[in-house]
Design a protein around this nucleic acid. Structure first.
Lengths: 248, 248
DNA sequence: GTCTATAGGCGGATAGAC
DNA sequence: GTCTATCCGCCTATAGAC
């Protein structure tokens, strides 16, 4: 009985927490992260504002929860898209890359305010805690995974790397993907940033009166990005450089 | 005398307007655009809040003025950088491209909050009027100009263009640069968005714990972007495709 | 866990005197 | 153009009863 009672309480707590976050997301859309207000959330939920403090000790904690949720939601979308194009084993790294990029764009279009929360301007006065890091890196890990598979499967050409950038590329590779050549990791990080540049420009209105058929434009652009990191179509065969990972 | 009096008044008005905008920019840094408050600006300036309404009829008008100023400031930085590398006539399109990109990045690092205002998440509830368009397109026009010169001077290789994208590319070219091949215009628009992706990621903290030597990394990445739009070093000579503009 | 009440602020915008 | 006064709203956060 004791455990049942606790179970009920725990479940109620989870449900109320979810309701608070849902309402907060609604307000994010209406007013933006900077004006997210515990009071307004409480009002909409028919609670006293002070009651919310039992769930989130401060406005910033609520914001952190929303940020982590958003990163996780986007990360899951990317992982799902990748898995779907992984089924045939040899779907081709370029296709998988494109599928993940398009999933990122689709998620952003479907959740513009959450996208703005995580990839838009920082919320003034809010300092993200370390807790957000694992969720924040999920999309990056998906992209790394695709390139890693291509590297093992010869679907990869090594981009060029000027001497000036080599130390930084080596450092990044050690941190992010020790099994990949530094050339590739440097190109990958650039492509990652550029991908979000494309998405952000569409979402934040910079493409208004410039790009009309955004879907086609985006598809083409991310294909170029894939090319930039060295991904090649497997049927077109050979990699541009001789080196290959030892784990064959 | 009449005209002198008007001149004095006009000058005073300009000075007060500038003071208001300066203080507003300070607040932008502290609180963000969403919380920009006429009252707070007035307080800092020692004026009654109602007095500000003689200068800016609403908070949004002040915001619009700040946005236009920011676009103009950035545009001027880009134009200056381009002009500096234009002097030797044949500085090379890749160098000019890189100089402009680096000027954009430098401006962004020097004015992070103004950058967030124009390229970050939109301010909730604020709708930018058409007035911002000319200022907003200055950087784009600089990039177009570099590519146009390269096209005239044979420093340009035509990127590939899939059939799917051709109609949109033709439309964009007609709008933005009728004298350039659609292939190039499409690649240019993508590079433009990707440039700001790189800058935004650095500025908004996505490169924290990922990229350390940002300057070198950025320089390399924008070199790749130049390559993507078909810019080539003049001494390396020949363009990849046969077509050339007729205005030789 | 939820409530009311309270402290001590903040905001946009307008009216009307000077 | 600037002021005071005003309307009417908003906020974070805490205290203490139930």
């Amino acid at each position: 009985m004791n455990s049942t009672a606790q179970g009920v309480r725990a479940r109620a707590r989870i449900e109320v927490t979810a309701a608070i976050k849902d309402e907060a997301r609604r307000q994010l859309a209406a007013e933006g992260a900077a004006k997210l207000s515990l009071r307004a959330v409480a009002r909409a939920l028919g609670m006293a504002s002070s009651a919310l403090y039992r769930y989130f000790p401060s406005r910033d904690d609520l914001l952190t929860a929303l940020i982590i949720d958003a990163y996780d939601s986007l990360g899951e979308a990317a992982e799902t898209a990748e898995a779907a194009h992984d089924a045939g084993a040899e779907a081709g790294p370029v296709r998988r890359w494109a599928a993940v990029c398009e999933a990122v764009r689709a998620w952003a279009l479907a959740h513009p305010h959450e996208y703005a929360l995580i990839y838009g301007s920082p919320v003034p006065g809010y300092q993200a805690p370390e807790d957000t890091l694992p969720a924040a890196s999920r999309v990056g890990h998906v992209l790394i995974g695709i390139v890693r598979d291509a590297h093992r499967g010869l679907g990869l050409a090594k981009p060029r790397l000027p001497a000036e950038l080599r130390p930084e590329a080596v450092r990044m590779a050690a941190d992010l993907a020790p099994d990949l050549p530094p050339e590739v990791v440097a190109a990958l990080v650039a492509a990652w940033a550029q991908l979000f540049g494309l998405v952000g420009f569409e979402l934040f209105g910079q493409f208004n009166r410039v790009v009309e058929d955004r879907e086609v434009f985006f598809r083409h652009a991310v294909g170029q990005l894939a090319h930039g990191v060295g991904l090649v179509y497997p049927q077109k065969g050979r990699a541009g450089a001789g080196e290959t990972a030892g784990e064959g």
